Structure formats: C-alpha cells, structure tokens
Computed example of a mutant assay.
Amino acid sequence: MIFFSRLSPKAAGRRRRRTDGRRLMLLGGLYLVLLAVVAVLIATFIRPLDITVPAARSAASGVTVLTVESRGQSFRFDMRALEALPQRTYRVTTPWYLRPVTFQGPLLRDVLAAAGAGSGTRIEAVAVNDYAATIPFEHAQAYDVIIALRMDGKPMSPRDKGPLFVVYPYDRLPPEVRELSFGLSVWQLDGLRVR
C-alpha cells in the first residue's frame, strides 16, 4: 500500500508563503538587474548636446582666482598673474577692522585693461558666495580702486576676506563716495563682469 502524505491546511499555507517570498525576492532581483542594464545603455548611447562656450583667454597657468567677463569673452587670472601687475599699497581705516590696515594689490583699471575690458559703464563684482555689487566704471578711473591680494603684507585667507578684496582708498574719498564705497567693497571676490 502506498501512503500519500497530505499537508495540513496550516502547513500548506506556510509553504505557499515561503514560496511567495522567494518569488518576490527573485522578481525584485531581476527588476534591479534590468534597471542596471537600462542605466548602462543610457550612459553608453546618450551623449550631451554640443554646447558652444565663448573661448576663454587666460593669464592663468595655476589655479584661477579671478575671471573677468566683457563683451562675451572671459579672461582668467591666477595669483601669479595678478602679482605681476603694478601694485599699489593703501593704509586705510575701515568699518571691518578696529585699527588701520594696509592693503596691497593691482589697480582695478589695470586688471580690466589686462583682460581687454578697458571700457564700460558698470562693473559687477561677484563674490564666491554669489554676493554682487555694481561698481560704476568711472570709480575704477577716478578713485584708484585696487584688487587687494595682501593685508598687512600677508596673503588673505577666505576667513580674512580673501584671497581677493575690492578696496577703495577710503580715507582719501569724498564723504558721500566713502559711505557708498563700503557697500561696493566685495571680499572673497572671484569674478568681474563689465557691462
């Protein structure tokens, strides 16, 4: 006589549940493999659109610290290129420091001329954090504004408003321009846009 074992209804339910769990895991694994294959195919066959970017001229052979944009062109400076320009030094009092401070750097107008941006109506000075101030172009000519590279003879760290800082000769300015100049003195400068 042959005996057939029959599962009780409880055992059959448990067996079905275990099988259903295995099927779900198998389907989930197949789904992940399919997604990976699709991602690889997309990455392989889809190429980014060709985008034309205006050519950038450069005086920078090292790390770019300042980009000047004018008339659809951009010019990049590294620290060495800025240091190669004639330097000015001002000892000034400012609202940011408790004592007079000495700043050194090239004139803003010399930086603009070196970048081929010798004319315009305004200069948008942009900081690393995207803060921007609009400097009237004539300020670069009339007030000997500098791009400070050093403070008290030392390079400025980002913590000390560096590495670049727009500095006016504050103590020699007419009172109405002096007050305005504090708001135009962009520190952590990394871009100039001439309009």
Results as ranks from 00 to 15, higher is better:
Val37Gly: 04
Leu189Ile: 11
Ala125Pro: 13
Pro174His: 07
Val40Trp: 08
Val194Ser: 08
Val128Trp: 08
Ala56Val: 14
Arg150Leu: 07
Ile42Glu: 11
Ser119Leu: 02
Asp78Gln: 09
Asp130Asn: 15
Asp50Met: 13
Leu7Met: 11
Pro100Ile: 04
Glu179Cys: 06
Gly162Phe: 03
Arg159His: 07
Val53Trp: 03
Thr44Cys: 11
Leu30Glu: 04
Met25Thr: 10
Val194Phe: 09
Leu24His: 10
Trp187Leu: 10
Phe3Ser: 15
Val40Asn: 03
Arg80Tyr: 15
Lys10Asp: 10
Val186Tyr: 00
Gly153Ile: 05
Trp187Phe: 14
Arg80His: 15
Leu66Cys: 04
Val177His: 13
Lys161Glu: 14
Val37Tyr: 04
Leu41Met: 03
Leu180Gln: 12
Pro158Leu: 00
Tyr131His: 13
Ala115Thr: 05
Arg195Val: 09
Ser74Leu: 11
Val63His: 13
Phe103Lys: 03
Val40His: 01
Asp144Ser: 09
Phe182Arg: 01
His139Glu: 12
Leu32Val: 15
Leu34Pro: 08
Arg22Glu: 06
Gly162Trp: 00
Val53Asn: 03
Pro169Thr: 02
Trp187Val: 10
Arg16Met: 09
Tyr143Lys: 01
Thr102Leu: 03
Ala113Asn: 15
Gly105Asn: 07
Asp78Ala: 05
Gly183Glu: 02
Arg91Lys: 03
Arg150Ala: 00
Thr94Cys: 08
Leu85Val: 10
Arg57Phe: 01
Gly105Ala: 10
Arg178Glu: 09
Ala114Trp: 08
